[in-house]
Design a protein around this nucleic acid. Sequence first.
RNA 1: GUGGAUGUAGCUCAGCAGGUAGAGCCCCGGAUUGUGGAUCCGGUGGUCGUGGGUUCAAGCCCCAUCAUCCACCCCA
Length: 422
Amino acid sequence: MKYQRVRGMRDILPEDTARWREVEGVVIDVLRRYGYREIRLPLLEATEVFSRGVGEATDLVEKEMYTFDDRKGKSLSLRPEGTASCVRACIENGLLHNRTQRLWYHGPMFRYERPQKGRTREHTQIGAEVFGIPGPEVDAEILVMLARVFRELGVGSAVSLEINSLGSGESRTRYREALVDYLSPRRDELDADSRRRLATNPLRILDSKVATTRDIVAGGPDLAGYLDENARARFDALCDQLDAAGVGHRVNPRLVRGLDYYTDVVFEWVTRDLGAQDAVCSGGRYDGLVERLGGRAVPGAGFGMGLDRVLLLHQALVERRYTDADVYVAVTGPHGPRAAQVAEQVREQTRLRVVQHAGLGGLRSQLKEADRSGARWAVIVGDDEVAENRVSLKALREESDQTMVDVEELLARLGPSAQSGE
RNA sequence: GUGGAUGUAGCUCAGCAGGUAGAGCCCCGGAUUGUGGAUCCGGUGGUCGUGGGUUCAAGCCCCAUCAUCCACCCCA
């Protein structure tokens, strides 16, 4: 084989795209029902949008970006996530001027990582961001909405919600200092990654999976204990609202997000069904980000959902038979033009998917193909039919006799099943 | 970036100790001159990931390389 896809990129084949469309359709539909508007963003940004927005010391920026210089030597990066681009676009286009925004976007993200189950270098996210609403009711709105998304997708039983609060700027800084003070004397007992993070991003040490590090951290200062009154009240209010809405959740005090812009509430929807890559959707509040990227101080909150992973769950949990056609038109002899005419009439009068047989093949093989296409009906146009100015209609998914009908009756018979079966 | 496993037909795989490739599914045709889904019969299809090396002889042994998968790491 001469050419193959670039490592970590993937082809989504016709046998899977119908399911993709269904899943994307459900998610987008829910977002629209909550009043979110679509924004379309470029795949490419100035590298600085991410290094400043996401954070210089994050793994994402440090080692996972596809970064290159353009022909004039300007550093560009394929977007590794959506929030920073979205904020940049909102500032640049004046979308945040004295008004709130509920936005969603959809598309591929790129991260230079080692591929494995549930993780590729190109993946698709649907994300949403809300700007200009400081209160916890937005955090609740987002999580209630996501619970609905998973429920309506039919994967609600496979995911669960974990939440935590990182505190707002000041309390977070105080906690960070306390944590460093506690860990520094024990530096030698930490694993290598955590030692490095002690200087760059100490909060990340909290969710280390190394057992010895976990034990050390467990004896250290407690993030929750450092929350100021505001953050504490906000988090409690959120938990109350989730309870009131019947959205199950678990407070995970070790939940720390990998991106620097998060403040206060952070959350992660996780699953046990995807091996090591257990996060399906995550997000939180990022009140300082707009300012950091050059805008006015505008509060924000949002999430990113990994559709590839959602698809894996959907595939495992939701039985579906996706078909390629509703009506398959078989034709014999020289009656191609007449068959095409009938097919067009059906398309004109219904929303059904009509495939007309093309190329060679006897009636037998045409019906075989009709069966394979998943069509519910076969329409046959041959000598006998044309002689009577009618067509034969045969139901492929139920036991019933084949009948010869004129076009008017054909349309009447197909009419009741006129919604496409896709 | 680290570790382990795997690359043979479109797909899933077999190939025993080195002797120039097999099965099932799929697809095509026939049994059924204009009738699918079941059954039976026949057929198409392979530079054995790639490049070197060892050997009279390599799918099998050696080296390199690429890719995939799983885990670490990280995240969606």
